[in-house]
């Protein structure tokens, strides 16, 4: 579930980066790479787990799924916070530079 949510976030971020000039200016590319990097790493985790437990991998308990979904959304929130902090520090629109 965490892998799925992260892949969806990666796809959405990639589409936003590709289609919007403003998004490129705001360094959405960092978010894109962050999500794709994590997705690839969790993909390896998923493959290893699948090799170990085979078909059982696709029948997770409801409680585990809920916890994984909660984790997935928390991961997105964390990535967004990191991205916002990066944008504020790099200040690509020179908002702070103008005030200073």
């Amino acid at each position: 579930m965490t892998l799925l949510i992260t892949i969806l976030a990666a796809v959405v971020a990639t589409v936003i980066w590709y289609s919007s000039e403003k998004a490129r200016e705001l360094r959405v590319i960092n978010l894109v790479f962050m999500f794709w990097g994590a997705s690839l790493m969790w993909l390896v985790d998923a493959v290893v787990e699948f090799i170990e437990i085979r078909a059982e991998y696709f029948q997770p308990a409801a409680a585990d799924m809920l916890n994984d979904a909660f984790l997935g959304f928390s991961v997105i929130a964390l990535a967004l916070v990191i991205w916002v902090v990066t944008v504020l520090i790099k200040d690509p629109k020179h908002i702070f530079a103008k005030k200073g």
């Binding site: 965490t2 992260t6 590319i29 960092n30 790479f33 962050m34 999500f35 794709w36 990097g37 994590a38 997705s39 690839l40 790493m41 969790w42 984790l71 928390s74 991961v75 964390l78 990535a79 990191i82």
Partner: peptide, 20 residues
């Protein structure tokens, strides 16, 4: 830098998962 972003970003998010 693309590679760095993928490695650092992925590692931070995975570290968070381990913390979780």
């Amino acid at each position: 830098k693309w590679l760095n972003s993928m490695l650092w970003g992925g590692s931070v998010l995975l570290a968070f998962e381990h913390l979780w």
